[in-house]
Amino acid sequence: MQRRAAGIYVAVFLVIAAGAYSLIGVAQEPTVSVENPDKTLSNQGQKFSVDGRQYNVTSLSDGSAKVAWTNQSATHSAALQNNSTVERGNTTFRLLIPNQSNPNRATLREVQNLTNNTQTVQQGNQTYVVVNGSGGNKSLVPVEQYKRQQFGEPETRTLREGNNFRYQNNSTTIANISKESVTLQWTAPKTTTTSLSDGGRVQLGPNNKTFVAHSEGSKVLLSQNVKAYNEQQAEIRHFQERIAGLWGVSILSFIAAMLLAMLAYMPFKG
Score class of each variant (00 low, 15 high):
residue 194 T to N: 05
residue 162 G to A: 10
residue 218 S to F: 13
residue 221 L to T: 10
residue 212 V to S: 11
residue 219 K to T: 14
residue 184 L to D: 05
residue 205 G to R: 01
residue 186 W to P: 04
residue 146 Y to M: 01
residue 138 K to R: 13
residue 153 E to Y: 06
residue 202 V to M: 10
residue 181 S to E: 08
residue 206 P to Q: 02
residue 190 K to A: 15
residue 152 G to C: 08
residue 190 K to D: 15
residue 171 S to T: 15
residue 213 A to R: 06
residue 176 N to K: 08
residue 168 Q to M: 10
residue 202 V to A: 03
residue 185 Q to C: 05
residue 222 L to M: 04
residue 217 G to P: 09
residue 157 R to S: 13
residue 163 N to F: 05
residue 167 Y to L: 12
residue 173 T to K: 04
residue 135 G to C: 03
residue 145 Q to A: 15
residue 162 G to Y: 07
residue 165 F to V: 04
residue 209 K to N: 04
residue 205 G to P: 05
residue 202 V to N: 04
residue 223 S to A: 11
residue 195 S to E: 04
residue 192 T to Y: 02
residue 181 S to F: 10
residue 147 K to M: 03
residue 190 K to C: 15
residue 200 G to P: 01
residue 166 R to Q: 11
residue 174 I to K: 00
residue 219 K to W: 07
residue 177 I to N: 01
residue 180 E to Q: 12
residue 198 D to N: 12
residue 212 V to R: 07
residue 197 S to W: 14
residue 214 H to T: 13
residue 154 P to I: 02
residue 202 V to G: 03
residue 215 S to L: 12
residue 209 K to E: 02
residue 193 T to D: 06
residue 200 G to W: 02
residue 205 G to Y: 04
residue 213 A to Q: 13
residue 198 D to M: 04
residue 170 N to K: 09
residue 133 G to M: 04
residue 198 D to S: 07
residue 218 S to W: 09
residue 135 G to F: 03
residue 178 S to R: 00
residue 176 N to F: 03
residue 213 A to W: 13
residue 218 S to T: 10
residue 217 G to V: 15
residue 148 R to F: 13
residue 189 P to G: 12
residue 179 K to P: 10
residue 162 G to C: 06
residue 188 A to M: 02
residue 214 H to L: 11
residue 212 V to C: 08
residue 152 G to N: 02
residue 146 Y to P: 07
residue 204 L to R: 11
residue 214 H to Q: 12
residue 182 V to M: 06
residue 188 A to V: 08
residue 213 A to L: 14
residue 151 F to G: 11
residue 136 G to L: 03
residue 196 L to E: 03
residue 134 S to M: 07
residue 156 T to C: 13
residue 200 G to I: 08
residue 214 H to P: 10
residue 142 P to F: 04
residue 198 D to V: 10
residue 207 N to P: 09
residue 195 S to H: 00
residue 139 S to W: 01
residue 135 G to Q: 00
residue 203 Q to S: 12
residue 184 L to G: 07
residue 222 L to W: 00
residue 145 Q to E: 15
residue 204 L to T: 13
residue 174 I to L: 02
residue 155 E to M: 12
residue 151 F to T: 05
residue 131 V to C: 03
residue 212 V to D: 05
residue 206 P to F: 01
residue 161 E to D: 15
residue 131 V to R: 00
residue 170 N to P: 13
residue 194 T to F: 08
residue 165 F to Y: 08
residue 223 S to R: 01
residue 135 G to S: 02
residue 210 T to Y: 05
residue 168 Q to A: 11
residue 161 E to M: 15
residue 217 G to R: 05
residue 211 F to I: 08
residue 194 T to M: 03
residue 150 Q to G: 04
residue 169 N to C: 10
residue 136 G to C: 04
residue 173 T to R: 00
